[in-house]
Design a protein around this nucleic acid. Sequence first.
DNA 1: GCTTATAAACTAATATCGTTAGTTTTATAA
DNA 2: TTATAAAACTAACGATATTAGTTTATAAGC
Lengths: 192, 192
Amino acid sequence: MSPRIGLDLQTIIRKAAELADKSGLESVTLASLSQELGVRSPSLYNHVDGLSGLKEELSLYGLKSLHDKLLRAAAGRSGDDAVFAIGLAYIGFAREHPGLYEATLPAQHSENAELIRTSEELIKLIIQVMQLAFEMKQEDTIHLVRGFRSFMHGFATLERSGGFGLPVNLDESIQVVLQTYLTGIRVKFQSQ
Amino acid sequence: MSPRIGLDLQTIIRKAAELADKSGLESVTLASLSQELGVRSPSLYNHVDGLSGLKEELSLYGLKSLHDKLLRAAAGRSGDDAVFAIGLAYIGFAREHPGLYEATLPAQHSENAELIRTSEELIKLIIQVMQLAFEMKQEDTIHLVRGFRSFMHGFATLERSGGFGLPVNLDESIQVVLQTYLTGIRVKFQSQ
DNA sequence: GCTTATAAACTAATATCGTTAGTTTTATAA
DNA sequence: TTATAAAACTAACGATATTAGTTTATAAGC
């Protein structure tokens, strides 16, 4: 009980990610993807639940890849060093995989349980790094992790959309802002 | 030399913004919008250059509205107070007009001159507030404004997409993060 | 007040999507 | 060798944006 083994989910998702990174997420359609795979678009329904299903799979793949990258970046590091490492890894991922990164965004208000779980794991990782770097009340950690994520996501998005027009080095901005934020944390939450 | 005066650009844009805020930007189509306006979709081409032209007009309208809101918020305030005011105004705008705010994003790498100009004015306003609040090198101001904008945009986006799941107050997060950031700026750039 | 020019709104038609239904094909299990 | 089941296919439909060409209503000129 097994038929033609032409396509499988992994092949489809990889090609979709490649297409998203090359031409933008909005250019990933069942039509363009099926053509790229040498197949007719209805054939994709054997592997994926329509376009929305494809986007969910892509989101999941992106979140797992991002989580994996942050995990590797944080390994063996601690304190400011670890925070910087995951921050740069985050921006790096968004730069290397702009389309795939974009696909990860609407992950949260999905119904897909695995998507929600993977999304939560990403947060947990960041919380752990921050909690180990700075000992403070759990609630404060959550506030500050929200700030960290917001900065990372906002920077990645604005950078990609060309929002930073001025001729000032972008990597330096990341350094300065993160350093400033961490200085604020140290002064405000660990001075007494 | 003047024909039927049923529609005009302003009516179209306002309705499009209303639709975007109510049902999401992706639900703004020439079909849905024309139906909402009691007109056939090709009629819109008399006022707007297709769907992409409509989106550009919407983006421009959103940027102007946002700029206006920040300007009012900053009027009569200075220092930390002014920075907090525009920060809260920014988040407030994104909360009140989620669809319109979303439309403002791809403003930068557009070719539309007025769109670029309006986008630059928004930056200039934030730079002015920050520069008056903290006296420092111009280049540092730009780094820190990038951080401020990134945080605002990231927070607004993640909040809307349901990215902050944990049961911790969101407004408090804004307060804590901004305070921490401003503390860092003061210590790092104005201590000596 | 009548005519006319002009811009707005229309109808008709096309191409491209996503999607569904039903058919054909082929690799594997029996 | 045969039967089964999953994959890939064709055909068709509805919705979309868009273009071309037609009709219509308003305002300007006489």
